[in-house]
């Protein structure tokens, strides 16, 4: 009974965002004949790949009624760790030690670092009962500071052609970042729909006390969810770094807001328990299409921010209207 109800709301929410997306595309396509081309389609998908990765992690967290403000900084730190290890390795002159890293090793190190940072968020939230907003706000600053320390404020560039494949390469006619984002989405969809972990995530967000009473180890679930989000932020960071062939110390500033926007536009409730990965992907596509369309139409940069905010509002209001019926 409950399950059926949940599925209905999700489908309806996704339908609303789909209508919003189609309307948006139609408007831009009428105004610019360059919009509906194959090239531009890949462009938009490649550009949103990073936001999709982060937003998927954010969705899992928001489903548990949490939030993660640190994703942008964690993205920057993990991208920089990967780039630094790849380029310089670890040198310890005192012990006459040098450890070089292969691409795979550096990637793993970056992703593990992301998972650990996420785990730390979860640890602070579950162990000390710090609200997620505050705990991850602290991590936002800490991770940014660590990025500055690690890079000394300077970009780490020229990482080699093999590494740049991750961000700029093609595989079977589809850009590599789109493959990565697509796999992330499939795995996350599977987790939320088919596994016990997925059901626990919805249960915690729906009613935490009820979840505790029914024997779910909510701390463990939260630790897992925050670690996943951290690891996905790292994946995003690696893609950004690879695309630019450079780890920028200020990369990812403000990305948490884009991710939250994607989650909200996609119909996931910030109070937890309701929403879906598919909806979030739709939200990310809407934001990506908007960014792309506004530039294609050469809209003044002053107006772009106003338009973006307005579209987010409209999408959410349409979504609300749909739910009331």
């Amino acid at each position: 009974m409950i399950a059926i109800q949940k599925n209905n709301t999700i489908n309806l929410a996704r339908l609303q965002s789909l209508i919003a997306l189609v309307t948006l595309c139609a408007i831009i396509a009428i105004l610019s004949d360059k919009f509906l081309t194959m090239d531009n389609g890949w462009n938009v998908l490649r550009q949103i790949a990073v936001n999709v990765c982060i937003s998927v992690g954010m969705t899992l967290i928001v489903l548990t009624a949490g939030i993660d403000l640190s994703v942008g900084s964690v993205l920057a730190l993990c991208g920089a760790i990967t780039a630094g290890l790849l380029k310089n390795g670890i040198k310890m002159p005192s012990a006459d030690l040098f450890i070089g890293f292969t691409i795979l090793g550096a990637l793993l190190a970056g992703i593990i670092a992301g998972a650990l940072l996420g785990w730390f968020n979860g640890f602070v939230i579950t162990k000390f009962k710090v609200p997620p907003f505050v705990a991850t706000l602290a991590m936002l600053t800490i991770a940014r500071g660590l990025t500055m320390l690690w890079t000394q404020g300077h970009p780490i560039s020229n990482l080699g052609p093999a590494f740049s494949v991750i961000g700029t390469g093609w595989f079977l006619g589809i850009p590599v970042p789109v493959w990565i984002a697509g796999m992330v989405v499939l795995i996350a969809s599977f987790i939320t729909r088919q596994t016990r972990l997925g059901r626990y995530i919805y249960a915690i967000g729906g009613n935490e006390n009820a979840a505790i009473l029914s024997g779910i180890s909510i701390n463990k679930v939260k630790l897992i969810v925050y670690s996943i989000a951290g690891a996905l932020a790292a994946v995003g960071g690696i893609m950004v770094t690879s695309r630019l062939d450079s780890a920028q110390p200020n990369a990812g500033t403000g990305y948490e807001l884009d991710a939250i926007a994607a989650v909200v536009i996609g119909g996931t409730s910030l109070s937890g328990g309701k929403g879906s990965i598919g909806g979030t992907v739709m939200g990310a596509v809407i934001i990506g299409v908007l960014n792309n369309g506004l530039v294609l139409l050469n809209v003044s940069p002053f107006w772009q921010q106003v338009v973006k905010g307005a579209v987010i509002l409209i999408a959410v209001i349409i979504d609300k209207g749909g739910k009331k019926k």
């Binding site: 081309t37 462009n43 490649r46 550009q47 960014n291 530039v295 294609l296």
Partner: peptide, 9 residues
């Protein structure tokens, strides 16, 4: 990202 979009137009 902005340049990629501009190059389309």
């Amino acid at each position: 990202e902005v340049m990629e979009s501009i190059l389309q137009a």
